[in-house]
Design a binder for these strands. Structure first.
Length: 285
DNA sequence: CACGTCACCTGCGTGC
DNA sequence: TGCACGCAGGTGACGT
């Protein structure tokens, strides 16, 4: 499920439910969900930690605790939700953190007995969790945030020129730019009118500027629509109702009505409009 | 460094 | 119905 807008949506939604709560204990129902440290150390260290802040970096959800950072990556099918502690675990729950409300929030405590849980549910078991006091070790190699000030047209133009890769796989590379996934990459390339197979070092200054604007536009739109929900994973968003090309092979381009094509690039489904995103280098090269 | 392949997992839709 | 197959929003570890 989650690309940047989905993780951002979840973080914003959970923040008010989590801030100030104390983690009582952890129920690790699928141990391999834990990337580090060991199960034993994890259960010791997480106990009694207070949640100070809830943020996001790339596709990582970050809980800033008293003494550690808890990093959660949802990968393909992960989801995070708050549940009343009295409700029994569900089939694909991988990690459940029992939370205690802060003494000051007496109203909340009165409603739910003071006990709620943060549940990491992940059907396909690809998701991972890290508890660490040095989060840079996990996040350090990520590229810039597309919605940050450092992601300028000039930076993008320079960075594209240093590489010799097709745009689609390069934009999916989290060490190049952080947060894009298969949906938003296809959507951004369509908005920018760039073919997914265009080589990065052939992109002009103007095209780099358009691509930068397109990436930011589509990510903001995704966030504004609370992300995209497809199939059984992650309910709540509505961006899936506004896809221009993603998952629309055979349907018509919203700009020019040409039939949208689907190809495989780097083992990933790739959708584009052959007219809007025609490129001489690719089609005749 | 680029790029191909497989691996990690479960579940859903399709076609026979 | 059953069954095989292809597909899925991600990444990491290989080998060439």
């Amino acid at each position: 499920m989650p690309e940047l807008p989905e993780v951002e949506t979840i973080a914003r939604k959970l923040e008010p439910e989590l801030i100030g709560k104390t983690i009582l204990d952890a129920d690790l129902r699928w141990p391999r969900t834990l990337a580090m440290p060991s199960v034993k150390i994890f259960k010791q260290q997480i106990k009694g930690q207070k949640i100070r802040e809830v943020t996001r970096r790339a596709k990582f959800f970050i809980l800033h605790l008293s003494d550690f950072s808890l990093l959660i990556h949802l990968r393909m099918s992960g989801d995070l939700l708050i549940r009343n502690s009295t409700i029994r675990p569900e089939k694909h729950d991988r990690l459940i953190l029992r939370l205690l409300s802060a003494p000051s929030s007496a109203q909340t405590a009165a409603e739910d007995g003071g006990l709620s849980s943060l549940v990491f549910n992940d059907t396909r078991k690809f998701g991972r969790v890290w508890l660490t006091s040095t989060p840079e070790e996990v996040l350090g190699r990520l590229g810039p945030e597309p919605l940050s000030r450092e992601f300028t047209a000039q930076w993008l133009y320079n960075a594209l020129g240093k590489r010799h890769r097709q745009l689609k796989p390069l934009l999916l590379d989290q060490t190049f730019l952080a947060g894009l996934g298969n949906i938003y990459t296809d959507e951004a390339l369509h908005i920018a009118k760039l073919h997914p197979l265009v080589l990065s070092d052939s992109v002009t200054v103007e095209q780099a500027r358009d691509l930068r604007e397109a990436v930011r536009k589509v990510l903001k739109e995704g966030i504004r629509r609370n992300g995209a929900s497809i199939d059984w994973v992650y309910r709540g968003g509505e961006f899936q109702n506004h896809f221009r090309v993603y998952d629309r092979a055979g349907k018509s381009c919203p700009v020019c009505s040409t039939e949208i094509k689907r190809i495989i690039v780097g083992q990933r489904s790739t959708h584009y409009c052959p007219k809007c995103q025609a490129d001489a280098e690719v089609t005749h090269g």
